[in-house]
Nucleic acid binder design. Sequence first.
RNA 1: GGGACCGUAGUUCAACCGGUUAGAGCACCGCCCUGUCACGGCGGAAGUUGCGGGUUCGAAUCCCGUCGGUCCCGCCA
Length: 611
Amino acid sequence: MRSNGCGDLRKEHIDNSVQLCGWVDRRRDHGGVIFIDLRDRTGTVQITVDPDLGAEAFAVAEHLRSETVLQISGKVRARPAESLNEKLATGAVEVLASGITVLNSVKGNLPFPVSVHDEENTREELRLRHRYLDLRRKRMNDNLRLRAQTIQAARRFLEDEGFIEVETPVLTRSTPEGARDYVLPSRVCGGEWFALPQSPQLFKQLLMVGGIERYYQVARCFRDEDLRADRQPEFTQLDIEMSFMDQEEILQLNESLICSIWKAVKGIDLPRPFPRMTWHDAMERYGTDRPDTRYGMELTNVSDIVKDMGFKVFSGAVKNGGAVKCIAVPGGNEALSNVRIKPGGDVFSEAQKAGAGGLAFIRVRDGGEIDTIGAIKDNLSDEQKQELLSRTGAEPGTLLLFGAGDTATVNKALDRVRQYLAKELGMVKADRDNDQWNFLWVVDFPMFEFNSDENRYEALHHPFCAPNAEDLGSDASQWADTLPGARAQAYDLVLNGLELGGGSLRIHDSALQRQVLQTVGLPLEEAQEQFGFLMDALDVGAPPHGGLAFGVDRMVMLLAGEESIRDTIAFPKTQQARCLMTNAPGGVADKQLEELHVASTWVDPTEEDSN
RNA sequence: GGGACCGUAGUUCAACCGGUUAGAGCACCGCCCUGUCACGGCGGAAGUUGCGGGUUCGAAUCCCGUCGGUCCCGCCA
């Protein structure tokens, strides 16, 4: 149907007869001559329709609207010297139309404009309802191309390294721990249920037992949890697993992978090696396991300085086993008024949202004088003051913001305040303009976290991570005691404060695997019932193995400078996990439910009262 | 499950502390215009202010409920 792409035409095509297909981006009617911007996936070119040089085409062109689908035949010619368009890649030429065929027209009003010139803030609800139109817009079209490039670059790298892509089941079984499963009734096996995979974790380990040695998969994963800007109920992981590799080798290989993706997609040579930080340091210095290292304002622990002071908020926190930490905001005295850091202020409420009771502050004035509430000032000795200033590196003009309480809450609150201030004070560029790529490996995660509500240990990562051998010790009879406090051979790749991926070395010893499952509170019989196949597999010569998985949606989001993974997914769901275009989920016929041996107990709350 | 914000013409927005016939840009329709490129000029049509209720002489505006969307907390190994 066409000889060239609209956006491909250049001077060298002058005098060529061409056929083009595409959409009317815009039409400019000068009464005598009509210009049409014709757009296809390659770009836009100007079509000129002259009544003297194509009367039939002119008659059609007179009534064209935006987004009409056209086939155009004509001749490429140079534009007059005074009407070159430097803003357009094809701006040196135009196509003089001899024939215009309308392939399809737009009936009624468009739900929203498509042209790049009209890409204003369209309500996302509308974009999702008419996603096919939204995808036609440059922004989404570009994002999907960028996504394909990203995946393509990963595939090329991994294939070159001897990895093969293996598909794993989408119909699988539910496992305890982790997120809520999407569940699917079995028609054939009445009363039994499939679950959609939260990740291919166990299957990829079994592929290692199966001698694949190097596996990857662009895998769809499913988790029935509430949504966020960076969380969808179905999402895509670049899932990788390999045998006979230690942690260092795995990190190196994945750095190479990331570098080749960034090179292919952004043309950037990332500096190597990526910095590393232990989980413990990350929590201590940033209050989070995924620090954004693009800016400073690290957390300083001042618990020891204030542990005995008269200001009970501080000393009490330390006495109760908590901590007092602070962040130093350079120039904060100038930039942040008291109104903003006191109750009701925007900075204060950030801390509050993270569960903090308050946000104490000290303003450092000229000559190291401090300005703060009396309760702090009156209870701080000169020595303590000096120590505070030197440890935080505070200079005149610096604002110190303090969190006090249990350590987890303090970390959470100050992490949140730190991120908020970085944006507020312009320490990071807007996502759209970001050109800083601060990768960071966070290593040495703890194996477990104690859940005080349920009075048991939970796997921080998942219960298949291999513990650090030193922490575990060689005496298997001691594992029940050494395991809970052990570090895992687990690692996360963090980019600009977002978790891009994570993984670990896996347990390849069935006895150790049983012990870990017991530690997270799974009785032996249940472990056998749920994971017997895994333990059996480990007993037939499982190789040492490990791997990781990257969040493809997030990676593309960062590469595209978007703030939501919905803008990297062709057909995403809303926060209510609904598709506004197809209106899924929807009802099914009673007969279908019968066949599945399922009855619904759902009661429409709006009709509940009538009973 | 909880907190916050949003919903006005096809669309993007406006309409102060409740007060004439709810306005504007773009899009749409008609007319004019032979070098524009987010063309320009003149004119026109277009609204159950998401929906339901309440307060009031009077509601887009205030209150309650509800539906939908977004952000966040919980949740997400």
